[in-house]
Design a protein around this nucleic acid. Structure first.
Lengths: 195, 195
DNA sequence: ATTTTAACATACATACTGTATGTATGTAAA
DNA sequence: TTTACATACATACAGTATGTATGTTAAAAT
């Protein structure tokens, strides 16, 4: 009954994938581990062997999504060499990634609540908020918005994007992305005139 | 054993208050109703008589906090007759109210997750986001930021304030409020130049 | 070849929510 | 003033979900 290492890896991936689907569809609280393992053709034993507990599985799911989103942001931002345009492109990429049905509930709603706000922020160095912070910090080094706290600005913009993304996802219309980005661009106009 | 109406009212208030304390301290998920009723010197029967379920009690707690915060916002905003200053004062009042230890966990973290994002928005007409929307709508009618969607702007600013408040609460320093407000004021500069 | 250990399955303990039922008391009408 | 009923709880229990302890089998390690 013991499987080979590669097979065990597949088991982990299966649990991650199935878990992601359930967490995305039902939310963390209403997701039953029993259903996840049943859908995976496994038992509670498998899950608790590979993950510490429900929160552990959720944490792992979040990590994989975060990596994907961060990759997306970097890819889009790198399409321009202008720092303000990079910022704008990165923000749009975040919103676009975040509202994907598989991501929305996990990233925008349950994530910070379940794993706690502190751990949420520390998640990993490639977390999307980190990318935002780095970009803003670089811009400040280049002389932009010198009077502002980059940390404060990061959280402010991050929050604006999170809530905007939720609103967009709710409306279901992709035009809303443009509206939200328009608002952000207006903020950026204010930032450009700050020193 | 049946108590008079007034006494029953006190029971409700007691449950609300004790519930608020537990929800604020431990978060919704880790709060046990058993502990609430024990702390109140009551039993599950009393709680389930006056409230539909755990979520019902939480909802009632949220409502009372929302009312308090909204009242605070209106009071502060009314101190000026300049619409931009009203906006700024209202925002500061929201942040200041939201970071109070008794409010933070309930309003900023668990609220939207537990009762669902839709019901969260619809909560009541005096909900703080509604006040923000009304203020922005009025300003737009006066010719401000005509090219922007007020709805989009509302969510964007609301999200910025929520996340900023969480960050401020985390740091524990009241100077952070000024930093966050400084960022908001920079946004407002951008808004002022938009039509 | 033998030992060890990883990868599960199964059974069970625990905890918490919600419900069903019982009881005592206030209240209003006959 | 007594009867009928509703209200305000208490208590006991059922249902469900998490997490843990233990057993089993086969792959690795020695």
């Amino acid at each position: 009954m013991k499987k080979t290492k590669a097979e065990a890896g597949e088991t982990i991936q299966l649990l991650l994938q199935t878990g992601k689907q359930h967490f995305a569809k039902y939310g963390y609280a209403k997701t039953a581990l029993e259903d996840i393992v049943k859908d995976s053709g496994l038992t509670r034993g498998a899950l608790y062997h590979h993950f510490k507990n429900k929160e552990g599985l959720f944490f792992a799911v979040i990590e994989s999504i975060q990596k994907q989103i961060a990759q997306n942001i970097e890819q889009q931002a790198s399409k321009s060499s202008d720092q303000w345009e990079q910022l704008s492109l990165g923000c749009r990429a975040f919103i676009t990634s975040a509202i994907e049905p598989d991501h929305k509930q996990i990233i925008l709603i349950d994530g910070p609540v379940v794993i706690g706000w502190n751990r949420w922020r520390q998640l990993d160095a490639n977390h999307s908020m980190r990318l935002l912070y780095n970009q803003l910090e670089q811009m400040q080094k280049n002389g932009c918005f010198l009077s502002l706290s980059v940390e404060s600005l990061t959280h402010s913009l991050s929050g604006a994007m999170n809530e905007s993304a939720l609103w967009i996802a709710e409306k279901g219309s992709f035009d809303s992305i443009d509206e939200a980005m328009h608002v952000l661009d207006v903020y950026f106009e204010g930032l450009k005139q700050t020193n």
